[in-house]
């Protein structure tokens, strides 16, 4: 009979009977990770947690733009060092990843992303990495180009690329099709309604973007394995015109479905269910802080325990130090991750 030979984890009731909902069975890796393997990370805010745990583990985090010796951890984070494998900041959409890789391969700059404010120059594609801007346009162009070359260098060494899909909503420059990590004007730059438009990427577009990104990655590193995850962090705000809950459900559904589809068709691509471990109804809201948006450190630890526990060759990882000196009592601020999207909170009507 179908079902009769299935493991307990295939049955909701049997999972429910287990204190931990049989979470240890939720992930069977397609490929094994072993000590010393070089892991590259990119993605939305939640992906920063993966980098921290990888750094604290027996794995090696690829970092092609390391912070200067002696730079305090808090300063480094504020300037985008050590969050991911290069200083690209948060990559929320599959389109943003595709664009970054195309720029890196093509050594390409976009004039529309060179923003100016009060005589300082900002990289519109990673405005948070230099919050005080740079002194000249040439300096900005040089920083961006050198960054792109270091993005490309990630794939000279990485064994595994971990990408966390975060959003489908983005803002685009209608003349060029360039997408931004955050709406122009939120951190720097100026919003131009004639030129900047909201874009909510659909299932087909997200699948096409992610597939194109993976093709580019494989051209740079044919043997690389890819691990996809979906961020469990809800949208801070939506420009879709819908309720933020509906918009969150749409966005995460598209990302989750695309991740499954891409992983299902390729033995070198795996999906890790961090989204389910945090958002699953068996766990209620226990993995979220009081704002029901930020994931608790215990929730992150649970995700990472499942991940490292699934790889026999890897020792468990204790909660790594965030490197941040001053904890905040505000759940909207106290995350150890750097998140431009969360800045939209400040734009909400009072």
């Amino acid at each position: 009979m179908p079902y009769s030979s299935l493991p307990p984890s295939a049955f909701w009731k049997l999972c429910r009977n287990d204190r931990d909902f049989l979470l240890s069975d939720i992930y069977q890796p397609k490929f094994s990770l072993t000590p010393g393997m070089r892991i590259a990370t990119a993605g939305s805010c939640f992906a920063q947690n993966i980098g921290r745990y990888v750094r604290a583990s027996e794995l090696e985090l690829v970092d092609t733009e390391p912070a200067p010796a002696l730079m305090p951890a808090e300063t480094a984070q504020r300037f985008g060092y050590g969050l991911f494998s290069a200083r690209y900041g948060n990559i929320y959409t599959a389109r943003q990843l595709r664009q970054l890789l195309e720029d890196a391969v093509g050594d390409r700059l976009h004039d529309c992303t060179l923003w100016q404010r009060d005589g300082r120059f900002y990289d519109g594609l990673r405005p948070n990495t230099e919050p005080e801007g740079l002194g000249s346009e040439d300096e900005l162009r040089a920083h961006r180009l050198d960054h792109l070359r270091r993005v490309r260098a990630i794939f000279d060494t990485a064994d595994v690329f971990v990408f966390t899909l975060g959003l489908t909503e983005t803002w685009t420059d209608t003349d060029t099709g360039v997408v931004f990590p955050t709406a122009p004007g939120v951190i720097a730059g100026q919003f131009d309604p004639d030129r900047h438009a909201f874009l909510n990427l659909g299932m087909g577009e997200t699948l096409e973007d992610l597939s194109a990104a993976i093709t580019l990655i494989r051209e740079l590193a044919p043997e690389i394995r890819i691990l996809l995850t979906v961020s469990p962090v809800p949208l801070t705000a939506t420009a879709s015109g819908h309720h933020v809950l509906r918009a969150t459900t749409y966005s995460k559904s598209v990302l989750r479905a695309v991740a499954e589809e891409v992983a299902a068709l390729d033995p070198g691509i795996d999906y890790f269910p961090s989204y389910e471990i945090i958002t699953g109804t068996p766990f209620g809201a226990r993995n979220y802080k009081d704002n029901l948006r930020n994931v608790t450190t215990e929730g992150v630890q649970r995700v990472m325990s499942v991940f490292f526990g699934a790889h026999d060759g890897l020792a468990p990882v204790d909660r790594p130090d965030t490197g941040l000196a001053r904890p905040s009592s505000d759940p909207d601020e106290e995350d150890a991750v750097v998140c431009e999207e969360a800045m939209l909170e400040a734009l909400a009507p009072k």
């Binding site: 504020r78 300037f79 801007g133 002194g135 040439d138 040089a142 920083h143 180009l145 050198d146």
Partner: peptide, 23 residues
């Protein structure tokens, strides 16, 4: 050097003055 098309990554990465000052 960095502005030269398809140059290799700089031998020593650039650090912005604001980042240096903040450190």
């Amino acid at each position: 050097g960095a502005l030269t098309p398809f140059a290799a990554p700089l031998k020593h990465p650039m650090l912005s003055e604001p980042a240096y000052l903040a450190a």
